[in-house]
Design a protein around this nucleic acid. Sequence first.
RNA 1: GCGGACGUGGCGGAACAGGUAGACGCAGCAGACUUAAAAUCUGCUUUCCGUUUCGGAAGUGCGGGUUCGAUUCCCGCCGUCCGCACCA
Length: 870
Amino acid sequence: MASPAPEPQRYDFAAAEPRWQREWEARGCFRVADSPADGRRKYYVLEMFPYPSGRIHMGHVRNYTLGDVVARYQRARGAAVLHPMGWDAFGLPAENAARERGIHPARWTYDNIATMRGELQRMGLSIEWAREFATCDPSYYRHQQALFLDFLKAGLVERREAWVNWDPVDHTVLANEQVIDGRGWRSGAPVEKKLLSQWFLKITRFAPDLLAALETLERWPERVRVMQEKWIGRSEGARVRFPLAAPKADIAEIEVYTTRPDTLYGMSFLALAPEHPLAAALAAENPEIAAFIAECRRLGTSEAVIETAEKRGFDTGLRVRHPFLPEQSFPVWIANFVLMEYGTGAIFGCPAHDQRDLDFARKYRLPVRPVVLPAEADAATFAIAETAYDGPGVVFNSGFLDGLAADAAKRAAISELERCGLGAGVVNWRLRDWGVSRQRYWGCPIPVIHCEACGVVPARDLPVLLPDDVSFDRPGNPLDHHPTWKHIPCPECGRPARRETDTFDTFVDSSWYFARFCSPRAEMPVAPEAARHWLPVDQYIGGIEHAILHLLYSRFFTRAMHETGHLAIDEPFAGLFTQGMVTHASYRGADGRWLYPDEVETLADGTARHRETGEAASVGRVEAMSKSKRNTVDPGAIIARFGADTARWFILADNPPERDMEWTESGVQGAFRFIQRLYRLVADIAAEEAAERGPEAPESFSPEARALRQATHRAIAAVTEALESFGFNVAVARIHELANALAEAPSGAEADLRVTRREAAITLARLIAPMMPHLAEELQTLLDPEAGLIADQAWPEADPALLLRDQVIFAVQVMGKLRGTVALPPGSAEAVVAAQAKAEPNVAKALAGKRVVKQIFVPDRIINFVIAAD
RNA sequence: GCGGACGUGGCGGAACAGGUAGACGCAGCAGACUUAAAAUCUGCUUUCCGUUUCGGAAGUGCGGGUUCGAUUCCCGCCGUCCGCACCA
């Protein structure tokens, strides 16, 4: 479609938008001090900062529009608003660009940042660009290195061996999500499990607090809190030690973790994870066991998803004694369904009361012995078939536990274990420490030095800079291959030593950027007064995909920074809002390949065809925008054609922001039309004022003028309420209503009407300002060129007197069914309403010949007549 | 399998705290303006029934319940989406 041609009386967004953007910037409208002293309430709005991939996409547009509405609204409400922007700039794509196209990662990254900054600026966001930084700036990551060394000193960091996914071709560690069907996502080579020394941040130390504090995060979505709760995964149970009947390879006992110590008498076997140290010891001397373990490992990576249910085991021949049944012994199996990562990597199997154990026992014909009796069951006949019983009940067949309810039996079993020294009650967590080592170049160097004599020595003279002269012609970590970089004398003893060549997981970078924004140029990670003033973030906005990792890591970092004296708070984000995705219809040509929306035209009957070839196209599902499906829409092109305000308005108007929205051409057109209509409407009013310079405020208002004034003030109240609760689509609807009311208002020249129309017009400008800031400035300038910037002005206040209605419409019901309405002044008495209602012909008809036995009256709302059944 | 969310016209959605369901917009239809188109403006637009003005019936995934009155509260199903996925 053609670009909208600028005409007289038509809003020329292409000229206006850059003009206002320059004006805001020149006047420093969005600047705040690190430690302000002007007495204004503070409000910190933050959207998740972008990865500089090259261009912004519609998800960014939605994210930053939402944040900007909040920021501009809060500023109008009198807050000093901190609204910064930066770049999550380290990461693998920059290295891939270097490998594929020979561009240096730094060059690629900073070029992308320049492009994307320009795109964001064209959106007209109320961002304080003076605070901008990228996480790959040495001036940022030097402080990250300092924080790490402080954490190290405080015992929040640990170096230990861990199993990792190792890509043998690329010579790098892969994250779990980079392993696809057991193969490296880039190389396609089968991934190996490798034991490597890794740096860990001890997030588990805060597990109890990270869990407990979730309750205090009242302005977080419930589902995010639930997801974090599950991820942290607290469970109460017991550790129980089972002595081996005959010690094996220096191992005399096996420790298991269980949440069901009350079912210990129902034990029928013990099972080890394939990675359990005892299993490894056995494998060393038994090839069959070694083969079984290898088989488990293979299945564990590649076919786990497909062959979920199949349980397999191997009887080691070892036997263990039972803490409560010293005369009995039980077999020790290795089983593929036991996880080394959880608990102790070993379980005791109680088939009667655990489905997995039951499946296993049935397969290998192991005994099933019920020990918990459901309420109505009979101990003599109760038996387990194919479903384990995990409900409540009374313990039986269990020696000293007999007759106790399950909860009491758990406590009794634990005390007995503790008394005889074979176990203890423990709380177990699913959360594991955070491995932050990555064998990559484009990341923040981990600032330590390895010395043969002194061990791990903290680097001095931060930052430890990345070398520029790196080569990507070999697989593996360029830092490790660099001819000189890693060689350095030990800071302690001066002998030759070696730098750590691993860099940090990029989640580290994003775990504290919100704090750095408070004082982005400080000579320490965060200036204390700035942090005290601005933190926590009042409103954080971003995608649900970060519900767990990024948000949990940031919560951990805040605690760790508190403990090391950098911050005085524990929770970084007081309010969290998670937005939905931007989706778009997808199209495929006759040959099945994806088509761009621009290539397709949709016909009246709903079918589609190729714009040029005319071949039929199938309309696919509405899906998240993705390059591979070719259903993306470029924000830059939209802004060029329709302006930033159109894009912002459509995004806000379409639906509630937490849901997925569908990007449609007609929706954009609708938004564009509304902007033009509003402009014409206000321009007409402005023109009439200019001809006859401002009428005096009239003594009284005609009913028509009063009606428009009421509409104006109702809109103020409704839009305010909607913006407070992220109801942007509702705010848009209320603004439409006010525009409609103004358009329909009588156009007489009487002073009261002119004043009232002008009030409505200026109110419209103020109400749209957070959402369409450029148009708002333009409209206000039309109405009053002397008024200054809307960006500096206060939010309008509704006059309570004008929110009262002159008349309310009562619904009149007979037996709960609507039979008519009556209009009466608010506060009318029940008797008055009843009389008036009964006089309505249609109501009278419904009541004719009936006896009213009851009358329900809700003031200013309804009156309902209940009539006798006959 | 477990956990969570959701289900309202052709579509996106609105409905304070149980009180006139469908605001507002998109799409569509009809009309005005125009040589014509675009733009703009006006009207209609949940379904069904009745001769219209107007009135009636049904209707918020399905089936029950509480209530004078249920999109809203309770019970049981069905469906969609998301998260976790052998967590002992």
